[in-house]
């Protein structure tokens, strides 16, 4: 019944959106798109650089140098490939009050979807194959939010032309809480620069949840932790079925091994009965004196928590 109600609410909300004030969108597009530049002609990069001398570095960056080989576009035509024909804009001579000045197409000033369309003319392949309909695309994230086509900050002008000094710094622009979380005592070597967010995530869209680079959490972790891949004679069911994130928080944790909480309570989230006393270990002075509490807790004995290939490994202790 409750599920049915939730669906009804969602359908109502969706209908509300469709019925909403969409007409103003057309005015917005007219204002931001270079529609009035229909009569403009191509003038060439030399003309552009005459005023935009600060973009001189574009000649040497990866983006510009790829044009000829990848798309058979001479450098002279490179600026207007993305910005549209610039004769009217150039003729305006920097006079911002002149309507022709606005006829140039500046993807970073357009709505995200319109700006991204420029990039996707060439880049709808490789890691961006599933960009359309992805979380970031649907949330109006623009390519320019992460990439700088002219003045890249990372990697000396080579791929991937990031707007910030590293892939992680780029992601922290919106995911501020992750910047701090990764500094906790149990963390992966992001702070040390040995890996980046894109080691696990594909921000351009992927078939998996959380924009994971692989099909699921388990496969993502096995990229580096092949020793956990098994397959095992005796699996630990949640490690196989639920994925590594049932017990680990890959973005950083107070606990060793980035565990979401400490043993034995970590294990007692599921194993609260069973052959061991269902004791609240440690809450009384008497049972605080227990190996089950110290150091790795349950893992002191059940150390093959990821699975065992030993014929006596049923309880993951061999």
């Amino acid at each position: 019944m409750r599920i049915r109600s939730s669906w009804a609410v969602l359908v109502a909300v969706l209908a509300g959106f469709l019925w909403g004030t969409g007409s103003s969108r057309a005015e917005e597009v007219a204002a931001t798109k270079p529609g009035s530049g229909a009569n403009a002609e191509f003038v060439g990069a030399s003309t552009c650089l005459g005023c935009h001398a600060d973009k001189e570095g574009f000649k040497k960056n990866l983006h510009s140098r790829s044009f000829l080989n990848a798309k058979n576009i001479e450098f002279e035509k490179s600026c207007e490939t993305c910005h549209g024909p610039g004769s009217l804009h150039a003729a305006a001579g920097g006079d911002k009050s002149n309507p022709d000045f606005l006829t140039i197409r500046n993807p970073s000033k357009l709505k995200a979807a319109d700006g991204n369309a420029s990039c996707m003319q060439c880049h709808e392949s490789g890691h961006r194959m599933h960009w359309k309909g992805s979380t970031h695309e649907m949330k109006n994230v623009s390519c320019q939010s992460c990439h700088s086509m002219h003045d890249e900050k990372a990697n000396g002008g080579k791929a991937p032309l990031l707007a910030k000094a590293s892939p992680a710094e780029t992601c922290y622009q919106c995911h501020a809480e992750k910047k701090a979380q990764i500094r906790k005592s149990g963390h992966m070597p992001l702070v040390e620069g040995k890996m980046g967010c894109t080691g696990c995530h594909n921000p351009h869209g992927s078939p998996a949840e959380k924009l994971l680079a692989k099909n699921n959490v388990m496969e993502t972790c096995f990229q580096c932790h092949q020793d956990k891949r098994g397959p095992f004679l005796w699996d630990h069911a949640p490690a196989r079925e639920g994925g590594c994130a049932v017990c680990h928080d890959p973005h950083g944790s107070h606990n060793e091994k980035m565990l979401v909480t400490r043993a034995p309570m970590l294990c007692q989230r599921c194993h609260v009965g069973g052959r061991h006393p269902a004791t609240a270990y440690g809450f009384s002075a008497a049972d605080r004196v227990s190996n089950r509490l110290a150091y790795k807790g349950c893992v002191n004995c059940h150390f093959q928590v990821h699975g065992s290939n030993h014929p006596s490994g049923k309880y993951l202790n061999r």
């Binding site: 969706l14 959106f17 469709l18 909403g20 004030t21 969409g22 103003s24 969108r25 005015e27 917005e28 204002a31 709505k111 309909g133 649907m138 949330k139 109006n140």
Partner: peptide, 9 residues
């Protein structure tokens, strides 16, 4: 199913 709608500018 995901739907994104630009209500206004």
């Amino acid at each position: 199913l995901a739907v994104d709608y630009d209500i206004n500018s």
